[in-house]
Amino acid sequence: MITPAAERKHSKQCIGANNDINVLDNSSLFDDLLDDKAPVAPYVVNGVGFEKGYYLADGIYPQWATFVKSFTVANDAKHAYFKKRQESARKDVERAFGVLQGRWGIIQQPARQYHVNTIRRIMYSCIIMHNMILEDQKMAVFDWNEVYANPSRNMQRTWVERCETQRRKNKEMRDREMHLSLQQNLMEHIWQQVDHEDEDF
């Protein structure tokens, strides 16, 4: 799980000339998903199955199946609690990115002159080294044996087949109903874990 805010911090775009949506439109963030090469990551929330991973996003982002946004206005305790937890998780991810910047100074440097693939390799390298350090210090929080492997895809697709796949995946990614379903089911799932008597809203 990562936030688009963390993703845009290492964009090669000029910081002053882009807002979140411009960066999203120019980002290669969903290229693997559109090309049907993204890892399969099925999960169940509140008894409902979902297949795509998601990013935590703030209100400016579109209602896509790949984003989980908070509520602009929390009408009741359930919505307020979800808003609090979602925003807290976003801050945690952004702080984690700050830790990477602190440990690996190369991430702090301007990246405009780098090719996007170079930036990607730098980021992956820093994340891998950071995780290796945590594992060596017995502080790892993730079992790598549970990582979903991407099943092999047929790379001999014709141009027409690739276009059709991208069209279908793009439609799935921008599915507003799926976004609302994921948001509601996550809210219900989180709410079921609350000790309502002790929680202060």
Rank of each mutant, 00 (worst) to 15 (best):
E197R: 14
G53H: 06
D92E: 10
Q108W: 01
D36P: 05
S125H: 12
H10Q: 09
N18C: 14
K9F: 01
Q183H: 09
Q193D: 07
A5D: 12
V48E: 10
R153T: 09
Q184R: 15
R112T: 07
I122P: 00
G102Y: 02
T72P: 03
A57C: 10
D32T: 08
E199R: 15
A77W: 00
Q109A: 12
K37R: 15
Q109H: 14
I21D: 03
W191M: 02
G47T: 03
Q101Y: 02
P110Y: 04
S88T: 11
L29D: 04
L182W: 00
D198N: 14
Q166T: 01
D175V: 01
K37E: 10
N185C: 06
D32E: 14
D36R: 12
V48A: 06
I133W: 06
Q166M: 11
I60W: 07
R103G: 06
N46T: 01
Q192Y: 07
P4S: 01
E7V: 15
H196G: 04
K171W: 05
F142N: 08
D198Y: 07
V93E: 06
L182C: 03
C126M: 12
Y81F: 12
P4Q: 05
H10R: 15
Q193S: 12
A5V: 11
Y81I: 06
H130Y: 08
I127V: 13
A111N: 14
N22R: 15
R112S: 08
F201R: 04
N154R: 11
V68W: 00
K9A: 10
H79F: 06
L56Q: 00
K84L: 08
V99N: 09
E177V: 05
E164H: 09
A41M: 14
L29Q: 07
F82T: 02
Y124V: 13
A65M: 03
Y81V: 01
P42H: 02
C14S: 13
V23I: 12
Q63T: 10
E161P: 05
E87M: 15
M187F: 04
E51Y: 13
T165A: 06
L180G: 02
I2R: 14
E177L: 13
I128H: 10
A65V: 00
T158E: 02
N75Q: 13
V194P: 05
F82Y: 11
R153W: 01
A57R: 00
F30Y: 10
I106L: 11
T118N: 05
I133T: 10
W191D: 01
A111R: 15
D58G: 07
K78H: 00
F82M: 06
R90Q: 12
F97T: 01
I2A: 12
Y55D: 00
G49C: 11
R121L: 11
M129G: 04
K52E: 09
Q101T: 04
Q166D: 02
A5W: 02
N18L: 11
R120P: 00
D31H: 13
Q192P: 04
R103H: 06
Y61K: 02
P42N: 05
Y81K: 09
V141I: 14
G102W: 02
E199D: 06
F67Y: 05
Q137L: 15
R153K: 13
D198I: 12
